[in-house]
Each structure stands twice: as C-alpha cells, then as structure tokens.
Nucleic acid binder design. Structure first.
Lengths: 188, 188
DNA sequence: GTCTATATTAAGATAGAC
DNA sequence: GTCTATCTTAATATAGAC
C-alpha cells in the first residue's frame, strides 16, 4: 500500500499523545515505544521529523473532530439541542482522551503558534473548519449568514475555553454550565 | 533582604516565558540567560528546581492578573461596560505578552494538569480567583449569588477560549466578537 | 549568597546494515 | 521498507570554589 498502515499507526499514536501531553512533552522516543514502530520507520515515513508528524497529526485530528462534530450536529434538527449534545459528549469524555470532540488542538496550538508558522496555520484552519460547522447548522435553521458566522466563532471559542478550564479544574462544572447557557447564547 | 530582588527577577522572567512559550519549551538555561542570574542562584533560591519555579510563577501571574482585572472591573460601575473593557485590554495587548490580563495561564495549565497535581491545583486556583472577581462584580449589581457564580465561570472560560483562538489565528476577531456579545451573555 | 564547571540523562536526528 | 547503533546537542541538576 502507498500509505502504509505503519504510517497511519504512527500518526494515530502521535495525535493522541500531542492532544494530551502537548508538543514538547511528547518525544519521538515515546511515539516509537507506544506505536511499536522503530525510529528508522518514523524518519522513513516523516523525513522532516517531529514538526512534520505534528503537522499531519493536527490535520488528522482536525478531520476526526470535524467528522464527529458533524455526526452529533446532524443527529437533531434543533441547533440548541444538537449543540448541547456536543457539550454533553465533552463532559462524557472528560478524562478519556480518546475519541475527543471539539477542542483537542488547543494545547498544541498555544505551544506552537509563536514558534512555527506552519503549525500555527494548521491549528488555525482546524479551528476555522469547526467554526464553520456550527455556523452552517445555524444557517440551516434560519439564522442570517453574518450572525451565524459570529456565533460559530463564539461557540467554538467558548467550547475551547470551557474544556480547558474543566480539564484544569478536574471538574465538569464549567462544561455543564456552558451546556445550560447555550439557549442564551444562540439568539438571532 | 530575605526575599532578594534577584529571586523576584528570576520569577518575573520565568513567568513571562512560561506564559508565552509554555512549561516544556522554557529551559532553565533560557531563564538564566534572560534574567541575568547564574544557574547557581536559581538552585539557591528554588532548591526544588523547575517545578518550584513554575509553581511560584503561576501563583505570581495569578496575582498580577487578579490585580489588573480588579482595576479594570472597578473603573466602571456597569458590569457590561467593565467586562467589555477587560476584553478590549486583551485585544490591545494581543502580541504584546507583557502586562497580559485574564488568560495567561492556559498554556501551562493544559501542559501540566495531567503531569503534576501541584501545578494543576495552582492553575485551577488562579482560574477560580478570576471567576470570583467576575461573580462579585455581578453580585454588586444585583445578580443573585448562584447566577453570578455561574456567569463568572462562563465568562472566565469564554475569555480563555477567545484569547486562545485569537492568538492561534493571529486575529483579534474572536475577542472582538466576544466583546460585542457580552450584553447577550450577562443576563440575570 | 554568587558563580563556574561539570555530571547525567534524554532529546532529535542520521547512517547504514538487512 | 524495517531496524539498530550512534552522533550531537541541550535539558535538568549538582558540587564546590569564592
């Protein structure tokens, strides 16, 4: 196969590690150990080294989250209800870093945005794509385009922040408060 | 003096570096170079090494931000207006990491919360203290205590998220949108 | 209290056998 | 394509002179 399964395996392992530990705390040695691939394979598949792995991991995570968000947002027609399910999923997965939904790029974004323009852009584009999903859901439900775009950005920021604070405080309360306030925020 | 000015100098330098670059990207060598203090002094003043410096830097930053927030929040009696000034300050200082206000612990919080319980707690307490300032401002203006507490948490989370996304996207729009939506969020 | 020299470990990266 | 051995650099930390 052109894109071997060993390559994908490295990417999946790296993505999880970068999400939880961040860029600098995740060593190639750890990626090697946890993925089972040897160092030689890493530099064969990713000749530009760690930065290339991180770049592709951000793109990969962006896509996974996009798909998961899309599924949750289309499960209910009502935008308030479906956005509340998105938050609820985050609550349910607190402390279970696999299968996260909505914010898992915040750490690597903050770590790398002042260090690598390539990585900053990749994180920025992931954020934008999520914002657009929220906006589209609102447009479908009769919101004007500009207003939907504003709210899409606000929602993505708020999710990002509430997840950060919930993880730091080891407490789902911030996310639960956000969930309850969604109807307040989603106003035409 | 008991707490020498060299000690404070190290702490101020480390706090800025941790805010911008994060915990793992900031080496003791860099703290030494930028503070002008030699390595021996660091381990004299902070015998437990990097983790101790980070712990005290988080507490220090928490206090500086608290004082700055307090000043901005008391400048106007109206809670909406004063919260909007808080956001405006963040916009004004985007890209100027000194004298930040409101979120500069997010990176180190995400980096360390799954690694050091001591650091996680310190970050958590800084967040809580900022949430309380927002809540107190609302209580002064007639909000019920429980509602003010909820909104204090929501506001701090939202600021955190909007700053993260603004920095990552190199664009103040997320913060500016938040500023405009503050009146929508602050409802009894 | 201050500073230098050094120990120790681990990081990212490469060379080259297979 | 896979794996090992190794290079180089930089990290945290310590010892000990002054």
């Amino acid at each position: 196969m052109g894109s071997s399964s060993s390559r994908l395996n490295i990417l999946e392992t790296a993505s999880k590690l970068f999400q939880v530990q961040g860029y600098h705390a995740t060593g190639l040695n750890q990626i090697i150990k946890e993925s089972g691939s040897p160092k030689g394979s890493i530099y064969y598949h990713f000749p530009e080294g760690k930065e290339q792995i991180a770049l592709e991991a951000v793109e990969y995570t962006g896509k996974i989250v996009r798909e998961q968000l899309n599924k949750t947002l289309t499960a209910s027609a009502d935008p308030v209800e479906s956005l509340q399910s998105v938050v609820q999923h985050l609550v349910d997965h607190l402390g279970h870093p696999e299968d996260v939904e909505g914010v898992p790029i915040g750490l690597i974004a903050l770590e790398t945005c002042s260090m690598s323009e390539k990585l900053r852009k990749a994180c920025s584009e992931a954020f934008t794509s999520w914002q657009r999903l929220f906006a589209d859901k609102l447009i479908e439900n009769g919101f004007k385009q500009d207003r939907a775009r504003e709210l899409g950005i606000l929602l993505q920021c708020t999710l990002e922040g509430a997840l950060t604070v919930s993880v730091t405080q080891d407490n789902s309360e911030p996310l639960r408060i956000l969930k309850e306030q969604i109807p307040l925020i989603i106003k035409p």
